[in-house]
Design a binder for these strands. Structure first.
Length: 282
DNA sequence: AACCAGGACACAA
DNA sequence: TTGTGTCATGGT
């Protein structure tokens, strides 16, 4: 296992890994351990960057963690209203990851009406039971790769339900089968226009507008994508549409114009802010 | 013990 | 188009 250093300023590692965009990271002895592709990874926050222990190529780590993104430059494009200022103030250094499309897609299919801790539990069970073992340092807990669509497609519904995913089981299996049959090409979406990529993703069972936007943002890096979940919906209505009744279409229009070219980052800051400051109802 | 969770879907009006 | 019930499971 190769230790190395990823220089980066102002990287909020704990909030980035633990706040609901990825579900497989665990805090262990002051660091964060997880799996990227087929590589076990341990990350430790340091003053001038991130210390990484892993066999994964450096470029893989940098890509996943997006360490080359200048977050101050991103923040500078946010609207300067009091709510965004407070959200940035609450966690300067929060990042967006760049995850594997299938893992991200499958994870968010499993996310609907679940709390983040429960999503983590479901995904962990799925990997433990059906993922390939990956190499770990002696003494560390066993770790597993995320099972690919070819593996998920072979499982029956009761095997999937044993991972506590409930009614989402047929969605996951159905989506795995469509990917496996080539009815959707996840790799090709990277170079598509965002509207086309979204429409494609929404053809999959269990994937609506919100989950599609999560995958567009967290896996493909479409920074205009703005997932609207219950927290963000509450934030938008409460902070920007008080005493009004926006239609979903009007809300979407607002997110695409008001928050600027990095709307997806703004969304993640608002999401984290709402969840950690659990605003009293207004 | 109710209520809710990073929703989607079929169906009604 | 917008509204309601349903789905499975566990945390708070």
């Amino acid at each position: 296992l190769i230790p190395r250093f990823l220089p980066v300023q102002n990287y909020a590692l704990a909030e980035t890994l633990g706040s609901g965009q990825a579900f497989r990271w665990r805090e262990v002895d002051g660091g964060w351990e997880g799996v990227i592709q087929s590589h076990w990874v341990r990350l430790v926050q340091e003053r001038a960057g991130l210390r990484a222990i892993s066999n994964a190529p450096t470029i893989t780590l940098e890509e996943y963690l997006q360490t080359s993104v200048d977050i101050e430059q991103v923040i500078a494009t946010f609207p300067k209203d009091e709510h965004m200022i407070a959200a940035v103030q609450a966690c300067r250094g929060l990042r967006l990851l760049r995850q594997d499309p299938w893992e991200c897609l499958a994870s968010f299919i499993l996310s609907s009406t679940k709390q983040i801790v429960q999503i983590q539990q479901i995904v962990e069970l799925l990997c433990e039971r059906f993922g390939d073992r990956v190499k770990t340092p002696t003494g560390a807990r066993p770790a597993f790769a995320f099972p690919g669509p070819e593996r998920i497609a072979t499982l029956n519904e009761s095997e999937l339900r044993s991972c506590k995913m409930g009614f989402r089981a047929p969605y996951l299996k159905g989506s795995a089968e469509m990917v496996l049959r080539g009815e959707i090409d996840l790799a090709r979406l990277k170079s598509a226009r965002v509207e086309i990529a979204r429409t494609e993703l929404m053809r999959l069972p269990g994937v609506g507008r919100k989950i599609a936007d999560c995958v567009l943002l967290f896996a493909y890096g479409f920074q205009q994508a703005f997932p609207i979940d219950v927290w963000i919906l509450k934030a938008l209505k409460q902070l920007y549409f008080a005493r009004r009744r926006p239609t979903p279409r009007r809300l979407f229009e607002f997110t695409q114009t008001y928050f600027g070219p990095n709307a997806g980052y703004a969304q993640q800051y608002l999401f984290h802010y709402m969840r950690t400051h659990h605003e009293p109802e207004l």
